[in-house]
Amino acid sequence: MMNKMKHTVADFKELKILRSLIVLITALGLYANTASAQESETYSVGDPLGLTSNGEFQPISSNVSVYGAIQSAESCIYDAERELIVVPSMGDRQNVQVNDAWVSLINFDGSVHTTKWIGVQNSNQRSDLNPPLVLNDPLGSEIADGVLYFADRDGGTSRDDPSTAVIRRFDLETGEPLEDIRIEESPWINDITVAEDGTIYTTQTGDIGPDGDPQSWKVWEISPEGSISEFAVGDPINVPNGIAIDTDGNIVVVNFGNPDVLTFSPDGELLKTEQAVQAGGDGIEIMPDGTKYISSVRQGGISRIRPGESAELIAENIPSAASICYDSDNNQLVVPMTSQSTLGFIPLD
C-alpha cells in the first residue's frame, strides 16, 4: 500500500513537470506568433486603385475613371510633387465611431487615384499598428517641408467627454504618422497654416452665433520649438475660420462671423482689413501675385480680392463650400462640398 502510494506521488510529480514544459513551449510559441504579428502590423498605406494578383499589384486600366472616396470632407490640399489633391474625409463623427477618418488622393479631374491612402485600416485595427494611427475629425489641412498637417481633435465622444485640439502630422512621402501636437487649452481647431520657419498658426473658431463669447475666438501660434501661445483673441477676429500665409510672410485670417479678411504681421499687428463679398468665410488661397480667393461655407460663393481692388464673386450657390485648395498645375480651385461629400472644380482665368 505504501509502495503504491509512493509510486503514485512520483507519477504526479512527473506529470507536473511535463505540464510545466508544455506551458513553457506553448508560451514560447505564443510569443513568437505575437512578435510575428507585431512585425506584420507595421504601419502601411493604401495602394492606388487596382488589384493584387499572384502577389503583384496591377493598376486599374487607364481608360477607367472612378469617382467618390469622399465623406464629409472639410478641406483639401494640393500635393505638387505627386500632382494629386489630398482630401481628408471625416467618416463617422466621434460620437458614432472614434478614429474613423481617412485620406484620399484625387486626380485633377476629380477621379480617384487612391481611395484610402492614410486610413486604409478600419478603426478597430489602427491602435495595433506600429506606429498607431489616430485620425478622428480632420478639418483644415496643410503641406509644409515634406509634412502633411491636419487640424484634428481627441475626445468629444459624448456630452460628458471633453474635446481637446490636436494637430496631426504625417510624413508626406510615406504617410507614416509623426508626433502629434496637443493644444490642451483648446477644445477644437479649424484651419491650419505653416510659415517658412516652421511656425504653425491655427484657428479656434469658438462659439458661433449672436451670443458667442469673443474670448473663444482665437488664433493659436506654435513655435518651431513647440511652445504654444495665443496669437490673437477676440476683436477684430470674429469666429475665425480660414487662415493662410501671404507672400510677405504675414498671417491672413478669414472671419466667419462677418466678411472681414484680416492681415496680421508675425508680431500680431493688424496691417490690413479687406472684405469678401459674403460672410460665413471658410477657406482661403493666396496666389503669388497677392490675389486672394475666399470661400463662404454659409452663402456658397467664392470671392476674389485682387490687390488694391474690391472683392468680386467668381462662383456662387456652391453647397457647403468649405476650405478650398489651389491646384497650381491645372490652375484651378478645388472646393470641398462638405454636405454633398464631393468636390467642386473652378478653372481660373
Results as ranks from 00 to 15, higher is better:
residue 121 Q to L: 10
residue 62 S to H: 07
residue 49 L to P: 00
residue 115 T to G: 11
residue 37 A to M: 08
residue 55 G to A: 04
residue 41 E to K: 11
residue 131 P to V: 09
residue 64 V to W: 04
residue 57 F to P: 03
residue 120 V to R: 15
residue 95 N to A: 06
residue 89 S to R: 14
residue 109 D to K: 04
residue 50 G to T: 02
residue 73 A to F: 05
residue 113 H to S: 06
residue 65 S to D: 10
residue 105 L to P: 00
residue 89 S to K: 12
residue 87 V to W: 05
residue 131 P to E: 05
residue 35 A to W: 10
residue 111 S to F: 06
residue 76 C to W: 03
residue 45 V to Y: 00
residue 98 V to W: 00
residue 125 Q to V: 08
residue 107 N to I: 01
residue 27 A to C: 11
residue 68 G to V: 07
residue 132 P to Q: 05
residue 25 I to F: 12
residue 120 V to F: 07
residue 113 H to V: 05
residue 123 S to T: 15
residue 109 D to C: 00
residue 121 Q to N: 14
residue 35 A to F: 07
residue 82 R to Y: 02
residue 129 L to M: 13
residue 47 D to K: 12
residue 74 E to Q: 13
residue 82 R to S: 01
residue 32 A to C: 09
residue 50 G to A: 02
residue 34 T to M: 08
residue 103 V to Y: 08
residue 46 G to V: 09
residue 112 V to Q: 05
residue 108 F to Q: 11
residue 106 I to L: 02
residue 51 L to R: 14
residue 122 N to G: 09
residue 28 L to N: 10
residue 41 E to Q: 15
residue 91 G to V: 12
residue 80 A to N: 11
residue 29 G to I: 15
residue 41 E to V: 10
residue 53 S to N: 14
residue 53 S to C: 07
residue 106 I to Y: 00
residue 60 I to Q: 12
residue 125 Q to P: 04
residue 70 I to H: 01
residue 106 I to P: 01
residue 117 W to S: 06
residue 82 R to K: 06
residue 34 T to R: 08
residue 79 D to F: 08
residue 28 L to R: 09
residue 59 P to R: 04
residue 27 A to V: 14
residue 116 K to S: 03
residue 44 S to Y: 12
residue 70 I to N: 05
residue 63 N to R: 06
residue 27 A to K: 02
residue 104 S to F: 05
residue 58 Q to Y: 01
residue 48 P to S: 12
residue 69 A to K: 03
residue 111 S to L: 05
residue 50 G to V: 03
residue 51 L to K: 11
residue 49 L to Q: 00
residue 123 S to N: 15
residue 101 A to K: 06
residue 113 H to C: 01
residue 44 S to D: 13
residue 79 D to W: 09
residue 27 A to D: 04
residue 78 Y to P: 02
residue 96 V to Q: 14
residue 68 G to R: 07
residue 29 G to Q: 08
residue 32 A to F: 06
residue 77 I to W: 07
residue 108 F to V: 05
residue 121 Q to G: 05
residue 113 H to Y: 13
residue 105 L to K: 03
residue 36 S to L: 09
residue 99 N to P: 00
residue 82 R to Q: 10
residue 92 D to L: 12
residue 87 V to A: 03
residue 96 V to S: 11
residue 127 S to D: 06
residue 66 V to N: 05
residue 115 T to N: 13
residue 33 N to S: 12
residue 54 N to F: 10
residue 46 G to L: 07
residue 96 V to I: 15
residue 42 T to L: 13
residue 98 V to K: 13
residue 107 N to A: 03
residue 74 E to A: 13
residue 97 Q to L: 12
residue 102 W to L: 01
residue 124 N to I: 09
residue 130 N to D: 14
